[in-house]
């Protein structure tokens, strides 16, 4: 099965070509730790963005310091290796929208070498100044228009706590596709996608500041769910969505 064995290298070559073609636009985050998080910038700008940590792989290169990206300037890669077949699980199936035996790509809660380790964070906020932070799922655009996105954690006993579910919001912990976290923290979740291609996930972060009052920011994050090798051709067109976006970087001191 020599040809199969070589597939990863061939695919890497194809991916590199796409990355090169889009390097002036959105960057591709393929491995390492980063968070989708909120910060209060310039005293009044409640800013929901991606904060990637040192060592994260972006456009094939390890970051040598933390970097921040606006939501439109980063694409989060979900590699084919994360594709699983939905088990016969009566909790997972309705909440993820994947039927038994169907494919689901799961960006995992656990830190795994070689893939993005995506957190949801409020740690850039001064906790003593803020209420809890509510992240609300907005419009989700799946590649076919009928795919499902979900976000969950293990409950510690082998079960699940869902926070986002396009398939059935009533199955989420708060019943309304929200994730509520304390200010000043960060955590990791499983991100589930039922099909390959480019996903646009709209999220709103909102919280109440002691003096500034209610603040909120809505952003759309892009996830690139890598398909079977035969589907690569379709990806070229999808990645082109990202063109025309200016990249924003801030460096930590």
């Amino acid at each position: 099965m020599k040809s199969n064995k070589n597939h990863p290298h061939i695919l890497l070559g194809i991916m590199s070509a796409f990355i090169a073609a889009n390097s002036a636009q959105a960057a591709l985050w393929t491995a390492g730790h980063g968070d989708l998080g909120v910060a209060l910038e310039d005293g009044t700008d409640f800013h929901f963005h991606a904060h990637l940590h040192t060592g994260a792989i972006v456009d094939g290169v390890a970051l040598t310091e933390d970097e921040e990206y606006d939501a439109g300037d980063i694409i989060i890669n979900v590699p084919e290796s994360l594709k699983a077949s939905m088990p016969n699980n009566t909790t997972l199936i309705p909440a993820t929208g994947a039927a038994e035996g169907e494919d689901i790509w799961i960006l995992p809660q656990s830190n795994t070498v070689g893939i993005p380790f995506v957190g949801i964070a409020s740690e850039e906020l001064e906790a003593s100044d803020w209420s809890s932070i509510t992240f609300t799922l907005g419009t989700v655009t799946s590649p076919s228009g009928s795919g499902d996105f979900s976000l969950w954690q293990g409950d510690g006993f082998g079960g699940f706590n869902f926070y986002f579910s396009t398939a059935d919001a009533s199955l989420t912990e708060n019943g309304n596709n929200t994730l509520i976290v304390g200010a000043g923290g960060h955590d990791h979740h499983n991100f589930g996608f039922t099909e390959a291609g480019t996903w646009l996930i709209e999220l709103t972060a909102s919280a109440t500041h002691d003096t500034l009052g209610l603040m909120s920011d809505t952003q759309t994050f892009t996830f690139n769910v890598v398909p079977e090798p035969s589907s690569y051709a379709a990806l070229a067109g999808l990645l082109a969505l990202a063109c025309g976006i200016t990249r924003r970087r801030t460096h930590r001191a």
Binding site: A84, N89, Q109, G154, D155, G156
Partner: peptide, 9 residues
């Protein structure tokens, strides 16, 4: 122990 993405520990 670790909670697994697709259930179980």
């Amino acid at each position: 122990w670790e909670s697994k993405s697709v259930g179980g520990v």
